[in-house]
C-alpha cells in the first residue's frame, strides 16, 4: 500500500469510505474496511509530510553528462 501515489491513495480512501457508508457489509468486512481506511489515510498523510521542496536545473557537464544543480535565477 505504501507504493501508492498520493492521488491513488486518496481515490481508494474515498471509495472505501463511500462503501462503508452504505452500511451493507458484514461486521467483519466493515471492520476490515475501516482498518484499510485508516491505513490509506496514513499513507496519504506520509506522502504529504515526506514531500520536500526542491527546485533543480538539469545541466550538461563538460563531458556531456547530465547533472542536477540547485536552480538560482540571476535576479536573486
Amino acid at each position: 500500500m505504501e507504493e501508492l501515489s498520493f492521488e491513488e491513495s486518496m481515490k481508494q480512501l474515498e471509495e472505501i469510505v463511500t462503501n462503508l457508508e452504505r452500511g451493507n457489509l458484514s461486521l467483519e468486512d466493515a471492520i476490515s474496511t475501516f482498518e484499510k481506511g485508516i491505513k490509506l489515510s496514513k499513507v496519504a498523510n506520509e506522502k504529504l509530510e515526506k514531500a520536500e521542496k526542491k527546485i533543480n536545473i538539469l545541466c550538461e557537464g563538460e563531458n556531456g553528462e547530465l547533472k542536477e544543480e540547485i536552480f538560482t535565477t540571476n535576479e536573486e
Binding site: 480512501l13 472505501i16 469510505v17 452500511g23 461486521l27 471492520i31 475501516f34 485508516i38 496519504a44 498523510n45
Partner: peptide
C-alpha cells in the same frame, strides 16, 4: 484544500463505522 479533504475523509471513515455499529 488537500489537507482538509484528507481530514474530511478520515472523519467520514470514523463516522461511518460508528453509524454502522449503531444500526446493527
Amino acid at each position: 484544500e488537500i489537507v482538509s479533504k484528507l481530514n474530511m475523509l478520515k472523519h467520514r471513515n470514523n463516522q461511518a463505522i460508528l453509524n454502522y455499529i449503531a444500526l446493527k
